[in-house]
């Protein structure tokens, strides 16, 4: 693959108190790729994702976006945390979609998408409204632009949340188990939007338990186990030739959804 490396993680470590959740994560995401993180709960997938946009701060190692360290700068040989304003500017280049949608409850669908455009990117109201309309259209919700979150179904809220993230024109989109809180019949509409985004060339880092989706859409799959990358590679490799018992056991839980292997 010739595409340039957009995100590179090297030896990322993170502890919560005495519990070490990330024990040295190495990972690469190239421009236009979809990389999926899979693994049991507690394996550190979500924590790693949250470190990428500084919702958690990693203790050691580097996370580089376009070669620029996330969250700190080097002062000689010392790491210095960036100011909140600088961290905010870095976050603006990384979109994130959450498990529980997290739409702003006091704003309509359209206003949810517009907030970052006007306040962070400094766009005019009119321009922001146009962009919001465009992306709400893309996720099939243009007719709901004036609705408040509580007037929308979970699937619709999550599609608004995707529109809110992607409207910022981020370099990278993070998806944190975005279908886990949805009723089963609403999962497909959200996955459909994500697949369309992936096909449009958006760079995505995805934590998901939707194995069919992961296998179908990902360029690269990373299996995490107890805070480490246990295996990574093309979906066919990871799903069809799991090289560890742990991965075989993990995939075995999804047995039956894969027609052949797994």
């Amino acid at each position: 693959m010739a595409e340039q490396i957009l995100l590179r993680a090297e030896g990322v470590r993170k502890s919560f108190g005495a519990l070490e959740v990330l024990k040295g994560i190495d990972l690469e995401v190239r421009q236009g790729q979809v990389v999926s993180l899979i693994g049991a709960s507690g394996s550190g997938k979500t924590t790693f994702l949250r470190c990428v946009n500084m919702l958690e701060e990693h203790d050691a190692g580097d996370i580089l976006l376009d070669g620029e360290p996330i969250g700190y700068r080097m002062d000689g040989s010392r790491r210095r945390r960036l100011s909140e304003a600088k961290v905010s500017a870095q976050r603006a280049r990384i979109g994130m979609v959450f498990q529980s949608f997290n739409l702003f409850p006091h704003l309509t669908a359209e206003e949810n998408v517009m907030l970052g455009l006007t306040k962070v990117l400094g766009k005019s109201k009119a321009e922001a409204r146009e962009i919001a309309g465009h992306w709400l259209g893309k996720v099939g919700l243009e007719a709901r632009r004036g609705h408040y979150p509580y007037q929308l179904s979970g699937g619709q809220q999550q599609r608004v949340a995707i529109a809110r993230a992607v409207a910022m024109d981020p370099r990278l989109l993070l998806f944190d188990e975005v279908t886990s809180a949805l009723d089963p019949e609403l999962v497909a509409e959200v996955l459909g939007v994500m697949k369309a985004l992936a096909e449009s060339g958006m760079t995505m880092l995805v934590v998901s338990h939707e194995m069919l989706f992961v296998r179908d859409v990902s360029h690269h799959v990373v299996f995490m186990d107890e805070g480490k990358v246990a295996q990574s590679g093309a979906p066919s490799e990871v799903f069809d030739r799991p090289d560890s018992e742990r991965l075989q056991k993990f995939l075995g839980r999804f047995h039956g959804i894969f027609s052949g292997g797994g």
Binding site: L55, R93, G95, M96, F98, F104, G116, A165, M168
Partner: peptide, 16 residues
């Protein structure tokens, strides 16, 4: 705190 995290994720600064 999810609302604050969502606000962080779109790049809003602390006072924003």
């Amino acid at each position: 705190k999810q609302y604050v995290e969502a606000a962080k994720a779109i790049g809003l600064r602390p006072w924003q």
